[in-house]
Every structure is written in structure tokens, then in C-alpha cells.
């Protein structure tokens, strides 16, 4: 992977970086998640240390780092899924659109409706394709069959899987291939019309072809959503993300625009990691 990086002439890299900087200055996207001094413990284990991170609208933010560095934990904190582990304790602030997500007035179900999640392993419900997509809207009280039909079609189209499944909407979702199941799960997430989509290594269980499809999809989705993606695959991070955060031992080592992280990282550990020297 280092080879692919060095294949680009240094001058070209600089030029691109300058263009990026200019673009950034022109239109800094709005912040959706503002994390300040976040600390998290699993029982006695200090899993996240003083995290400070901004997630921007209409951007893909990649979180990279070796196994056990806390990247998934951080992602799950953003929609408070991490609290399903009983021993979890947090300090610090995460503001979602200016409002603390730990505030008692913000109900966790509300937060998760606005901050959708796609998991590492495709996890469709053991129901039909249609029911999988309609589940979200239904639990939020939509009963009208015509509206549901429309949401199902729109979501499946949004995840670019409509053409593959339109003739078998009422078949079991388990009949789909792994890659299709994952795009179905993304469609299911789109059906609740979130503002942010969290993705926890969404392609790690997929073959290369399906992975490319999901990546294409992510590039399309960022026009409308803020996307935070945890990934083990650094090429993937460099291909699809606008910003990259490098996590190590529960800390953010470096967080910057993706081209900066991959071309001119300031921290030695970041450079070692992206060049495959550890992790």
C-alpha cells in the first residue's frame, strides 16, 4: 500500500493538497458531532482517553487504527449503542448539532433515529426484504401502506440495490448475497431518514467486488449524509474519506484531512501505521 502512495509524484501531491486547503478554506462544512474530552471506561479498562474530534456534514470521516484501539467504541458512543454494555462509564461531552447526546432531555431512541448505524457483519432481520426496510418507519409509527411502499423503494434505490431486488421484495432477506445484505442494511438505515450514518467496518465481511460497490455507495451517500466509517483497510480510508482520524490505545494520535494524513502525517506513529510498519 505504501507503493501506491509513492507512485504519485511529490509535486502532484503538494498541488492536490493546496487545492484541498483552498477548498477547505472556502467552505468548511458544518459540524454535526463535536466531541470534547471524551473518556470512556469498560469497568476498570480505560478505553477512550480525552478524545477531541469534529465530524462534519456531507463528509466521510474515516477512523483507522489497530485492533483494540477504541475506534469502534468511539463510533458506538456517537449513537450511544455502547451503553448496551452494562459496565460502561463516560465523562466529557459529545454535542450533536449543538446538543449534548448525554443530556437527559435527549432520548436515546431519538438520537438513534437521527444517527443511523451499519454494522460490521451484515445483520438483516429474518424477515422479507420489504419488511427489513419497513421495520424502521413502522416502529416510528408509519402505518400507511402507500407511504411505506414509497419509503421502501426510495431507500432501496438510495442504496443502489433496487434493481437487484425489486422483483423479490417479499422474499427472505437471507437469500441475498453477503454484499447485497450489507447494502440492504444500509437501505434499512436510510429508511429512517437519518442525518448521520455510522459504519463499523461495513466491508470487512465482504468480497472485493461487493466492497467496491459499498464504497461507491458511500461516495454517493455523502452528498446527503455525514458518514463516519471505522475501517481496518487503509486504502479504503484513503479512497473514500475526506478526513481521517488515527486512533491508538484509546487516543486520537492525529486527525486531519485524509490527504494530509496519508501524505504528510505529522506524527511518526501515524506514518508507521499507514506504511504498514505495525498494526
Amino acid at each position: 500500500m505504501a507503493g501506491a502512495m509513492t507512485a504519485i509524484p511529490q509535486a502532484e501531491v503538494k498541488k492536490r493538497a493546496n487545492i484541498e486547503v483552498l477548498r477547505t478554506l472556502e467552505q468548511e462544512k458544518e459540524v454535526v458531532f463535536d466531541t470534547q474530552n471524551l473518556n470512556l471506561w469498560y469497568g476498570e479498562k480505560h478505553a477512550l482517553r480525552d478524545i477531541n474530534l469534529d465530524i462534519h456534514e456531507e463528509e466521510v470521516t474515516a477512523i483507522i487504527g489497530p485492533s483494540g484501539c477504541g475506534k469502534s467504541t468511539y463510533l458506538k458512543t456517537l449513537n450511544r449503542m455502547v451503553e448496551l454494555v452494562p459496565s460502561v462509564r463516560t465523562t466529557g461531552v459529545i454535542q450533536y448539532k449543538g446538543k449534548s447526546i448525554f443530556d437527559k432531555s435527549l432520548r436515546v431512541e431519538e438520537l438513534r433515529t437521527q444517527v443511523g448505524m451499519v454494522f460490521q457483519k451484515p445483520n438483516p432481520f429474518p424477515k422479507s426484504i420489504y419488511e427489513n426496510i419497513a421495520y424502521g418507519p413502522k416502529i416510528h409509527g408509519i402505518r400507511n401502506k402507500m407511504i411505506l411502499d414509497e419509503i421502501v423503494e426510495k431507500s432501496l434505490r438510495g442504496a443502489y440495490i433496487w434493481d437487484e431486488v425489486k422483483d423479490r421484495l417479499h422474499d427472505n432477506a437471507y437469500g441475498l448475497s453477503g454484499g447485497q445484505q450489507q447494502r440492504l442494511c444500509i437501505a434499512r438505515c436510510l429508511a429512517i431518514e437519518p442525518d448521520v450514518i455510522l459504519m463499523d467496518e461495513p466491508t470487512s465481511a465482504l468480497d472485493p467486488k461487493s466492497t467496491l460497490k459499498v464504497e461507491e455507495l458511500i461516495r454517493e451517500l455523502k452528498k446527503d449524509y455525514a458518514i463516519v466509517i471505522v475501517t481496518h483497510n487503509m486504502q479504503q480510508a484513503s479512497r473514500i474519506s475526506d478526513r481521517t482520524a488515527f486512533f491508538l490505545d484509546g487516543e486520537v494520535v492525529e486527525y486531519d484531512r485524509t490527504d494530509v494524513i496519508f501524505n504528510e502525517p505529522t506524527d511518526q506513529r501515524t506514518e508507521d501505521y499507514i506504511n504498514g510498519r505495525f498494526g
Binding site: E109, R112, G116, N123, G136
Partner: peptide, 27 residues
Amino acid sequence: VPNHLGEASYGLGATKWQTIKNIILPA
């Protein structure tokens, strides 16, 4: 019942009872 089914439901903003009733019990 695999945990990931419940997680998928919670992730969509379902309450605990909705998750039990619609996902966990049928499975």
C-alpha cells in the same frame, strides 16, 4: 437469538419492548 439482531433494531431507534416484540420473540 443472535445479539446482532437486537442491535440492528436498537440502532434504528426502537425501544426495548419494540425490539423484544418484533425481533427477539419471533426469532
